[in-house]
Write a protein that binds this DNA or RNA. Structure first.
Length: 335
DNA sequence: CAGACTACCCGCCAAG
DNA sequence: TTCTTGGCGGGTAGTC
């Protein structure tokens, strides 16, 4: 039975992700007949820790607090490009060996991956980071389409709000659906959400306005940006004639399929340029551009800058890893 | 940069 | 009658 829950943070806190964990496990609901948890937040370096949202949190506990935990949660991990502190990795291994369950949220999967806790396992992370995680750790089977993955001892969940689903899932396993649903009601969220995180990929218009069965197709296409996406193929996927598809597409998105895909591919290219050192030709391939020239052509035309310049200016502005992580997460939050 | 080729996509229009 | 569908033509844009 999980009764002692510890959220562990690095040198920067993702406020929402930590907040979700604290809301589910840290709030005393025993007065309403719901289970109580001994909840704490601990830090690699205790003290005043800034959040990515402009305010700071006081964390008193250090890593030794993890020794009592039945469940260790990593709500996010700031420095995805930096080797994590050995003491933190050791504490995670110790917790795992002791039989504690470990849960990561969003970019927290990078910490677990770096600590080699995900080797040979399936894992989830925010959809924007999934390709990066998969590339960096070929041994991990990254699933970009689910809200969370339960591998028993280790559990990973997708971006931001998927933390709610993952935490409630844990409660449901321990205490049953009734308890989990009661907590969900208190939080005013659905007790159990179906579907993958793909449903949160930003679309041109609110989903309610993307009718005509186009919403599914947009999701489908967005997950396949690296593949050839002709009008013919998409129309077939949407089970429509090409002419009707074009009309409905324009009605739903306000743009044409070709322009929509181009914009999505450019956005993906920007992300890869910012967060990886892949050569431009490789970035182009991963984004569905025929070659580097094609990417450079469209990038220059729509962004008024070359891919190389874009990468240099981004890296120049955000030289240190922490600032880069903050910018990425802030950008993600607007998605 | 040029040229051939291909795909896109939008007006038009007949059919349901 | 009004609306939607879907085939066709061909100018334009993208690809090689």
């Amino acid at each position: 039975m999980l009764s002692n829950v510890v959220a562990v943070v690095g040198d920067e806190i993702a406020a929402f992700e930590l907040g979700v964990v604290a809301e589910v496990f840290g709030l005393d609901r025993t007065g309403q007949g719901l289970p109580g948890y001994d909840f704490a937040v601990c830090a690699v370096n205790p003290g005043r820790i800034p959040t990515s949202s402009g305010f700071a949190v006081m964390v008193d506990e250090g890593l030794e607090r993890m020794r009592a935990a039945d469940l260790v949660v990593v709500p996010s991990w700031t420095s995805r490009d930096v080797v994590p502190p050995p003491a933190l990795v050791a504490a995670l291994h110790e917790a795992m060996a002791r039989g504690a369950k470990i849960l990561s949220v969003c970019s927290g999967a990078f910490l677990l991956a770096s600590a080699r806790l995900l080797d040979g396992k399936r894992a989830a992370t925010h959809w924007r980071y999934a390709p990066i995680l998969a590339r960096r750790y070929p041994d991990i089977e990254v699933d970009a389409e689910v809200l969370y993955v339960d591998e028993g001892a280790v559990m990973t969940s997708a971006g931001t709000a998927a933390a709610i689903d993952a935490c409630l899932y844990i409660v449901r396993q321990e205490h049953g659906a009734e308890v989990a649903n009661a907590i969900a009601r208190r939080m005013v969220v659905p007790g159990h959400r179906h579907g993958g995180q793909a449903q949160f990929i930003e679309t041109q218009l609110p989903e309610s306005e993307v009718g005509n069965g186009l919403a599914e197709l947009l999701e489908w296409a967005e997950l396949r940006l690296s593949e050839p996406l002709s009008v013919k193929r998409m129309a077939a996927q949407a089970v429509m004639s090409e002419r009707t598809f074009l009309r409905r597409f324009y009605t739903a998105t306000g743009t044409t399929p070709h322009k929509w895909i181009l914009e999505k591919r450019l956005a993906l290219a920007e992300q890869l340029l910012e967060t990886t050192d892949l050569p431009v030709d490789q970035v182009a391939q991963n984004c569905g551009f025929a070659n580097g020239d094609s990417l450079r052509h469209h990038f220059a035309r729509r962004r008024m800058i070359s891919p190389g310049e874009y990468r240099r200016s981004f890296r120049g502005r955000l030289a240190d890893g922490a600032a880069g992580g903050r910018a990425l997460r802030n950008e993600m939050r607007t998605a």
